[in-house]
Simulated scan of single mutants.
Amino acid sequence: MAVSSLTFRWVSSTINNKLNLPHNNDSPRATSAFFSGETTCNEEDHCKRRPLMLGVGALTASLLNASSLFAEDVPKTYKAFVDSSDGYSYYYPSDWRDFDFRAHDSAFKDRYLQLQNVRVRFLPTDKKDIHDLGPMEEVVPNLVKKKYAAPNQIVDIFDMQERTIDGKSYYTFEYQLTSPNFSTVSFSTIAIGNGRYYTLIVGANERRWKRVRNKLKVVADSFRMLDI
């Protein structure tokens, strides 16, 4: 599936191309879209854009079809988040809400369960493809143990998958981090493109994992890099 970005032209120069679209059962005319406006930066030199709720009454079906991402139906009970300026997109559960997650570019969470969330960040890189990091069997364990886990956490990696879509490669893996007082299980998808190293993580409390695993796997598998 070839994925292309959507382009919008606005009078205000502060509006960027972040688009939050409903699943196929929602009417475009009855739904507001998220576009980024205010920008703040943390000490890691990474800018986090806070979405602004802007009504888009003129968003038509022909506009949606401008990207082949929407040629296929967004799964029921999910919405699509598209960031055409930063070059990525993914699905998230439609009842989740956006929130600020430190050093991340976008994030959504369950309304009631704080640990049930998805977040995406990216860092600059001179590498061209995820394979430039090394084989998946080496990259994933090193990443989880050295970057994702705290020193007091026990790491378990359950599954690793490599996918190539439209010539772009992705590693997706499932892992558990166990602390003395609690445990979380997550999927992560990593990819390299556009001079950026993208990371998506979607997870939940270990006690709820069996109930939500398949739901969250859809999110992890939906991540796509867009050409920018």
Results as ranks from 00 to 15, higher is better:
residue 1 M to E: 12
residue 2 A to S: 13
residue 4 S to K: 12
residue 11 V to Q: 14
residue 14 T to Q: 13
residue 15 I to W: 04
residue 17 N to C: 06
residue 22 P to S: 07
residue 25 N to G: 12
residue 25 N to I: 04
residue 26 D to S: 12
residue 36 S to Y: 13
residue 37 G to D: 07
residue 41 C to P: 02
residue 43 E to F: 15
residue 50 R to A: 10
residue 55 G to K: 10
residue 57 G to E: 13
residue 62 S to V: 07
residue 66 A to H: 11
residue 70 F to K: 02
residue 72 E to A: 14
residue 72 E to C: 05
residue 74 V to R: 09
residue 75 P to C: 00
residue 75 P to K: 05
residue 77 T to Q: 07
residue 80 A to L: 07
residue 85 S to Q: 13
residue 85 S to V: 13
residue 89 S to K: 03
residue 95 D to Y: 01
residue 96 W to F: 04
residue 96 W to H: 02
residue 105 D to G: 11
residue 107 A to D: 01
residue 116 Q to G: 02
residue 117 N to T: 09
residue 119 R to L: 12
residue 119 R to H: 13
residue 127 K to H: 02
residue 128 K to V: 11
residue 128 K to T: 14
residue 130 I to Q: 01
residue 131 H to M: 12
residue 133 L to G: 03
residue 135 P to L: 11
residue 138 E to H: 10
residue 139 V to D: 02
residue 144 V to Q: 04
residue 145 K to A: 06
residue 146 K to T: 15
residue 146 K to L: 09
residue 157 I to Y: 04
residue 158 F to L: 08
residue 164 T to Q: 13
residue 165 I to E: 09
residue 165 I to P: 08
residue 167 G to V: 04
residue 169 S to C: 09
residue 173 F to N: 02
residue 173 F to H: 02
residue 176 Q to D: 08
residue 179 S to F: 01
residue 179 S to Q: 11
residue 182 F to L: 07
residue 184 T to P: 07
residue 189 T to I: 01
residue 189 T to L: 03
residue 192 I to W: 00
residue 195 G to C: 07
residue 198 Y to N: 03
residue 206 E to V: 12
residue 210 K to W: 03
residue 210 K to C: 00
residue 212 V to L: 07
residue 217 K to E: 05
residue 219 V to F: 09
residue 226 L to A: 05
residue 228 I to N: 14
